[in-house]
């Protein structure tokens, strides 16, 4: 029996093997990109239903970032919002027959966690300066430097494992039940996966926000007023 966690390439682009998660991710990117481009083509000051939904999404992401970081959400909006949307759509893609969610594979979760780690470091350096950011590893004392470094790694791993474990387990459970019981029996479990997928997307986005917020430090001004010119 093949390892269910191993990936077999669907095809090769030159020397690069293209696996199913990559193809599904491209499909999700294409769908999201087309949807975003079409939906935002005619924005107006008097919004329609679709624009209202998009504005609700953006304001909700902004509100979440502002509540967590106590900062202007603009520099972080695209990253946090994109991660949330991608993880949510990827988790829910399991509803499509024959599609295995990319987040059920360790490589996708690791890629997202690496992006968050890189963003944390980049925003931390941008917000505090290189010296200031490195100095945070010596807080509250230089003795804590090893622990803080380990914390950076472990919390990235926790992001990976949490998302991977939840989504992969859901997919496995549905697959096992489907193979044992029949066609319609896993439907309640799939509905549960919808909830689990949404919760995991929210958790991943919120944890990313928390990590980035901790890296850039506390704002000394009111929310919405950025203290340093962070990249947007």
């Amino acid at each position: 029996m093949d390892n269910p966690l191993s990936l077999e390439p669907l095809f090769h682009l030159g020397p690069v093997p293209i696996t199913a998660p990559v193809v599904v991710t491209w499909a999700i990117m294409l769908a999201l990109g087309l949807f975003a481009a079409l939906a935002t083509r005619r924005l107006s000051l008097t919004p329609g239903k679709l624009q209202t939904v998009l504005e609700l999404l953006v304001t909700t992401v902004d509100s979440q970032i502002r509540d967590t970081m106590q900062r202007d959400p603009a520099p972080f909006r695209a990253l946090i919002g994109s991660i949330f949307l991608f993880v949510l759509i990827a988790n829910w893609s399991a509803l499509i027959p024959g599609i295995e969610p990319p987040t059920a594979h360790l490589e996708t979760d690791a890629a997202l966690a690496l992006v968050v780690l890189a963003a944390t470091i980049a925003y931390g350096i941008a917000g505090r300066g290189l010296g200031g950011y490195l100095a945070t590893f010596a807080e509250p004392s230089w003795v804590m430097i090893p622990l803080n470094v380990v914390e950076q790694i472990t919390r990235t791993f926790s992001l990976i494992v949490r998302l991977f474990g939840n989504v992969m387990s859901g997919v496995f459970v549905v697959g096992i039940v489907l193979s044992l019981a029949g066609l319609f029996v896993p439907i309640p479990l799939m509905a549960l996966d919808l909830l689990t997928g949404a919760v995991q997307a929210y958790i991943f986005a919120v944890l990313a926000t928390v990590f980035i917020g901790a890296a850039v430090g506390e704002s000394h001004g009111p929310a919405g007023q950025d203290q340093k010119d962070l990249p947007r």
Binding site: L7, V16, P17, I18, T19, P21, V22, T25, W26, I28, M29, L32, G33, A36, A37, A39, T40, L54, V58, V61, R77, A78, L79, G81, S82, I83, L85, F86, P102, H105, E107, T108, A110, A111, L112, L114, V115
Partner: peptide, 21 residues
């Protein structure tokens, strides 16, 4: 796959930033 997904994530962030957010 890890590398491609990392690139995909970055590209997706750019796409959504450019066309949505």
């Amino acid at each position: 796959t890890l590398g491609l997904q990392t690139v995909n994530a970055v590209v997706l962030v750019w796409i959504l930033a450019r066309f949505l957010f």
